[in-house]
Nucleic acid binder design. Structure first.
Lengths: 214, 214, 214, 214
DNA sequence: CATGAATGAGGCTTCATTCAT
DNA sequence: AATGAATGAAGCCTCATTCAT
């Protein structure tokens, strides 16, 4: 009777195993130079097996990105769940940035991949199902910030702007800084300024969001 | 002896011709799905000829991106050259954003390609020469903003932060918004909010930059 | 001890079930584009099970073709069994064609497959057992016509030719018309002339067979 | 100035070279078990080169079949061109069969391939251009026989039937006999009865076509 | 300089078949 | 006997790059 369930579980595990392998290889070599065989080798499976779990390379890649997004969104929604703890909207935006940065640290290369995913070239080749999954997860991420912002606005702390535009800007700022700083690392192998720059970016952003008058 | 120069000039022209063709095709199809033959066809040349002017596909692509960056930097430096015209630092940041947006409108798809270029996957394959060219051009772009910022800071208008970090943030904000809004267009084909979102982003950014106290 | 027999019977049934499924899928998609998984799905079995009943895809396919041939031959032999009913040899050839056409109508796509089977490419891969089974069944089919023909010849109705050659010609004519008309249907989707053409073909054939003089 | 033409000629030659190689390999191994690499090897070219001349395997195969059909049709039309030479319609049908058989002897394996081509499975994958080319060539082949038949009918020699149906039957009889006798050769490696059987088939067919009365 | 035919390595993917459960 | 996940060989095809003309 548990046989059905065991199968289910094993299937999930196998899927996970592939995704972990894929994540590593994609991280090492980038999307284009990663071959399905590379992934299969890393997963200690045969190439054919990958196709039992993912329709093709693109969808494997997208699934990976969705996974990390999902993790991110969960973390964001958790943040909001633990209502208040005495945090004002301003602190919440701060906390939100901490979550973003945490997730990035936990999975630095994959978050870069999410941007790659964003590139239209990739998006155009995905199945409608995956696209709508991405849309959905994005919506939830946006929602998390919107909620914080509206609370702040209603309390008279934040200026009045279109909430979704602000959410987009927040995400753009975050992802833009990551992408840019990562590429700076390639060009000149200086110290890594990511966290520092991110903190300044958010500080400025929050200042810009707040009403100035006393 | 003018023969030497004519050769030079013709070579430059031919190079330009290829880059224009490449730009168009890359814009239409993205980097990966563009073939050298596509570009050759569009340029009305043979594939072999492309290799007389560019070492390989990656470098052709990078040259393209550098070109648009160069154009952008020239525009930025011009902006600063026409000293003052009575503009305060704040207006100058506004003007700077206008330049960024202008260039984007003039070449919307290519600027997306610049981000692709930023992706580590591409950067890792470039020759040292190109890499340093990119580094140089970036430095100049950064310099343009830094100059404005320092003027503002010294006049007591802007808060005191690391100038280069702020420049990075500005660029990240701009490129992040473009990339994100472009990908939103793919996912749901709504209206295009790029300009609107960019304006809000810069407004908030400038507010965040300014000292608040009277 | 009936247990043994039940097993046998069940095995036969299962085998049949697979063949029915295979027939349908082969008919829909042709031999090459049919996968064993397709067949397993249609039979509501697992791919592995198929191999308990058939050595491989080719032999499953051949078995199928033999089956329909066997059905055909039974029908032909029945026709001859019901001795005379007052039919002369000429009417018998007519009746024979009716049987052929009936079987074709009952299983239109499969009979095409028989021709595919005939194609040397397929035959070369069959096991000796299957090959001799095919030979045997062919011989019986040929025999049916030969019997009719000899009756006619001995009665002075038909001209004197090598009986087996004539049998071959009859079958060739029938299968040739089917194959050709089927392919014409693909090329231009006109009306289907199969029956009409077949009737004319047999009319001419019988005329050619008959002695002309009074 | 002849450079253009030389290119043209070389291109044609190269195409031919590939088709010859393909014909040989297809003949040896059949369509499915022939790989593009096999053909490339036989042609002493690289696999990629094949694709400069043929869109894919199916179309290379179809081109081959069309070629032999074209040759056949030319022979048929020549036959009719050399008007009369005192041949009556009856002798012309005989001569027509000789041509068919000649072509078969000249290219025995390829004509089998034409039948393979006829199989719907293959036809369904061809480009519209090739399909219409096939349609056209078939029409011409049919036309050749129709002309002879009508002459005979108008002279009161042949019975009155739908001419195209008769043409179809003639072709079906010819191709059916070839296909069937070829497959008999596989099953039991007796002597080859092809020519003998074909002659009888045509004799009977012509008898059936002729009016019987004095 | 320009050409463009040729190369050939290598990628993605399919699918007949096997085998541990 | 049945399963069905896993295999892995092999095929088709693409395309950046080269080189003889």
């Amino acid at each position: 009777m548990g046989i059905q369930e065991r199968r289910e579980r094993e299937k999930r595990i196998r899927r996970q195993q592939i995704m972990v392998a894929a994540k590593n290889v994609f991280s090492d070599k980038g999307f284009n130079r990663t071959t399905m065989e590379d992934i299969a080798n890393r997963a200690e499976l045969s190439p054919g097996t990958l196709y039992l779990y993912f329709k093709n390379k693109e969808e494997l890649y997208a699934s990976l990105s969705i996974d990390i997004m999902e993790y991110l969104v969960e973390r964001l929604e958790n943040l909001l769940g633990q209502n208040d703890l005495g945090m004002g909207p301003e602190q919440k935006v701060d906390a939100l940035m901490d979550v973003l940065f945490n997730v990035y640290e936990h999975d630095p290369l994959l978050i870069i991949n999410v941007f790659h995913l964003q590139s239209s070239e990739t998006l155009k080749n995905l199945s409608p199902e995956l696209l709508s999954e991405i849309e959905n997860i994005s919506r939830r991420a946006i929602g998390a910030f919107v909620k914080i912002y509206i609370e702040g606005r209603d309390k008279g702390i934040f200026i009045d702007k279109h909430p979704i535009a602000l959410a987009d800007i927040l995400w753009s700022l975050f992802s833009g800084v990551l992408l840019w700083e990562e590429s700076k690392k390639i060009i000149n192998k200086d110290k890594d300024f990511i966290e520092e720059t991110l903190r300044i970016a958010f500080e400025v952003f929050i200042r810009g969001l707040k009403k100035t008058d006393g």
